[in-house]
Design a protein around this nucleic acid. Sequence first.
DNA 1: GTTCTTGCAAAATATTTGCAAGACG
DNA 2: CGTCTTGCAAATATTTTGCAAGAAC
Lengths: 139, 139
Amino acid sequence: MNEGLDNKMEFRHIRPTAMRAIVLKLMMEKTAATSLPELENELESADKATLYRTLKTFEQNKLIHRINDGSGTLKYALCKDSCDCDVEDQHIHFHCTKCNGTFCLNDISIPKVILPSGFSLSGIDTVVNGVCSNCNNDA
Amino acid sequence: MNEGLDNKMEFRHIRPTAMRAIVLKLMMEKTAATSLPELENELESADKATLYRTLKTFEQNKLIHRINDGSGTLKYALCKDSCDCDVEDQHIHFHCTKCNGTFCLNDISIPKVILPSGFSLSGIDTVVNGVCSNCNNDA
DNA sequence: GTTCTTGCAAAATATTTGCAAGACG
DNA sequence: CGTCTTGCAAATATTTTGCAAGAAC
């Protein structure tokens, strides 16, 4: 029943263990980015250190990417299947200040920046803060 | 000898204590943003909690602003004299992945972002990662 | 059987708060 | 005097590592 998950991992050269399948499945079911403490709560059977290393492995092999949304806790979201985590794959993240949820906005082009001379650029992290559509509807 | 510093603080309705003058002076001498642990190292006489609350007071009164550069440690940089910390005062930050220094790039316009419907926007944090001119010269 | 993964424990780092003593107006 | 600030201590939260047992290939 985990063929899809296992394929995803094997494609990224990650050994598909049961634990990793559980984490990946959970992350695929979410619309918002996840944090280590959040995974810890939802998967009580799993150890913090295991989850930490699972996320690290996923990140190193470009199955997920890390998001620093300013909430004080690192979050992680799935990469697209074709993701190479290079400039073309960069996208904006939206952080809801009400529900603390963080979402990838893949459709919005990332802003261009021209740096002062002497500076070289490797990537741009843009976090848009505001209120998401869910929270706006509740109000 | 602290007239300038004291004026800056009084202008922001911050009671100008000796400790605060020391912190403000140190921050004014820096070109890069500072963190709490960094201040702790450089001002051995000062207590962590005091520095923490000093930074908090400075931030609340818009003498400094907070930067989350993805390094895992919050940083703080001086606001401009005229700063009101609203949309007009927002600017890009550059984070050097080599020296871990973080700088305000006031001259570069912040990118515009159009969100999906239902989302409302309160602010945009953009951190440009790369190598600063100092570190590029060393190479 | 060799390598990789997991779980338990604990360290390391950063941030934050309580409380009593002290400084300031 | 009353309020604000500081220093010491400790709590909290998050991230990270060591090591031995277990699983995968």
